Simulated scan of single mutants.
Amino acid sequence: MGISLSLAGLEALRFAVAEARRRDSRLMAVRAWVCHRSSWAWPDREYERTLADKARRTIVEAFEEAAGEVPADLPVVRRTAEGWPPIVLKESVTSPRDLLVIGAGRRWPAGEVVRACVRHQACPVVVVPPPEMARLARGRTTARRLFREAAAALEKNQGNVPD
């Protein structure tokens, strides 16, 4: 499962959790990070550690946003690695029976990462589109705001539900 904080990525995480439960298998949450280098400037180790830490925090944040927390009833393996996401995801696949789940990204039906994953994986790939509300809102910021407002309204009104 490729981890992303995009709305499609969070939807993909929900799908992957449900699928891992259905298959009674572990879930590997993978977040790739890239340390951009040029011929004249090599980032130092501290910068690379910062990027790796951010990737680890992104996995935790994605579970919190998508499911409230990392599921306790499911074995979850967290992996972060430096590299281009399709390569990191390909290296994370251990069997042709694995299932790679990724969010569609900004360009639906397929962006560069999605196309590369579908083209080069040795296992089935599920590409999860963003939620319908996000597609209708036509924008990540607007859709996230709408989701947060809806969640706040539900939370506020939970105590006001008649028995």
Rank of each mutant, 00 (worst) to 15 (best):
M1W: 01
G2T: 05
G2S: 13
G2P: 02
S6V: 04
S6H: 01
G9K: 05
A12E: 03
A12L: 07
L13E: 04
R14F: 04
R14M: 07
A16G: 08
A18G: 08
E19A: 14
R21Q: 05
R23G: 08
R23Q: 11
R23W: 03
D24P: 00
S25C: 15
M28Y: 00
M28A: 12
A29H: 03
V30T: 12
V30A: 14
R31N: 15
R31M: 07
A32L: 09
W33G: 02
V34M: 10
V34R: 10
V34A: 10
H36C: 05
H36D: 09
R37L: 08
A41G: 02
P43Y: 04
P43S: 05
D44E: 13
E46V: 13
E46Y: 03
Y47H: 13
T50C: 03
L51A: 12
A52R: 10
D53R: 15
K54R: 15
K54S: 14
A55Y: 00
T58F: 01
I59E: 12
V60L: 13
E61G: 06
E64T: 13
E65F: 02
E65N: 06
E65Y: 00
V70L: 14
P71S: 13
A72W: 00
D73S: 07
L74E: 07
V77K: 05
R78Y: 00
R79Q: 11
T80E: 15
A81C: 03
A81T: 04
A81R: 14
E82W: 01
G83Q: 05
G83W: 01
W84E: 08
I87A: 12
I87G: 08
V88Y: 01
V88W: 00
K90P: 00
K90H: 08
S92K: 02
T94R: 14
T94P: 00
D98Q: 06
L99A: 09
L99S: 07
L100F: 03
G103F: 03
A104V: 11
R106Q: 14
R106H: 10
R106P: 01
W108C: 06
A110I: 06
V113L: 06
V114R: 05
A116M: 06
A116G: 04
A116F: 01
V118P: 01
R119E: 13
R119C: 05
A122C: 11
C123F: 03
P124C: 13
V126E: 06
V126N: 03
V127F: 02
V127Q: 02
P131D: 12
E132A: 14
E132I: 10
R135L: 15
R140A: 15
R140P: 00
R144C: 05
R144P: 00
R144D: 02
R145S: 10
L146S: 05
F147K: 07
R148A: 13
R148V: 06
R148E: 11
A150I: 12
A151S: 10
A153K: 06
A153E: 15
A153S: 10
E155K: 09
K156M: 11
P162A: 11
